[in-house]
Design a protein around this nucleic acid. Structure first.
Lengths: 125, 125
DNA sequence: TTAACTGCAAACCCTTTGCACGGTG
DNA sequence: CACCGTGCAAAGGGTTTGCAGTTAA
């Protein structure tokens, strides 16, 4: 069982702020770069360890992408559908207005859940 | 430019046949295992090199998955939508009967194409 | 014969882990 | 002061590359 006590450190806070500041799903390297403004020689291992801890605590959600390493975002923004900008490689969570749409599958396939991944260009800030 | 001449080898043929035999998108390890029936000490590097060559020649299509390494399938079966069996980790291409469905996106997002990834269990052979 | 192909091992890249030190509570 | 967290460097896992020997054409 997990009765570990979590401590506040300047590294952990910098990582949290970096993810919030990004405001879209970001990867470990991206997090490191942003957080390094606050904690110059932050190690990548610390970023990975904190991501893991935060995901376990439910403070961070992994966003898995086709053909790419996972990115992370605060759980409050949780939306399963994604938009991948093919110009900038940035990822956004979207609400594609599905109504009651549901894919129909051939026999034998039991649908648990589904995800729509959109590709294109995002022309915004 | 690429004016290389491609040769037939027993390894390359075994790899091609392994992918055809699988009849669903397969990864390098899976290809190696199947092809090893024909060519016992086939090297994994050869599998990777042939995958690359075949993708470049258009004889093979990569199938990219969220949070997983890409798998490959013959281009004739090309369908963008996928079903991932969470029991066996096997991947299947599907036709989810979309009709004229299209996701509606917020302003600023220019939709180029989209893909539906379904998760669940496949109860078939 | 020539140059593409192969197997092996080493090199890579990204992620994880071991260790000694530093810092929180 | 106990023990969690950190930085560094080494270890892992999957993919790629260098090399010398093999083989297709």
């Amino acid at each position: 069982m997990s009765n570990k006590i979590f401590r506040e450190t300047k590294q952990r806070n910098a990582i949290k702020r970096a993810i919030e500041k990004a405001n879209r799903p970001v990867g470990p390297k991206e997090i490191l770069e942003i957080a390094c403004d606050e904690v110059p020689n932050l190690g990548i291992a610390t970023v990975y360890r904190n991501i893991k801890t935060m995901v376990e605590k439910g403070e961070l959600d992994p966003v898995e992408l086709p053909g790419q390493a996972p990115r992370y975002q605060p759980p409050s923004d949780k939306k399963p559908h994604l938009f991948i900008c093919e110009k900038t490689d940035r990822v956004y969570t979207i609400d594609p207005k599905l109504g009651d749409f549901k894919p129909t599958l051939p026999e034998g396939f039991k649908l648990e859940r589904f995800q729509i991944i959109c590709f294109g260009e995002f022309e915004g800030k």
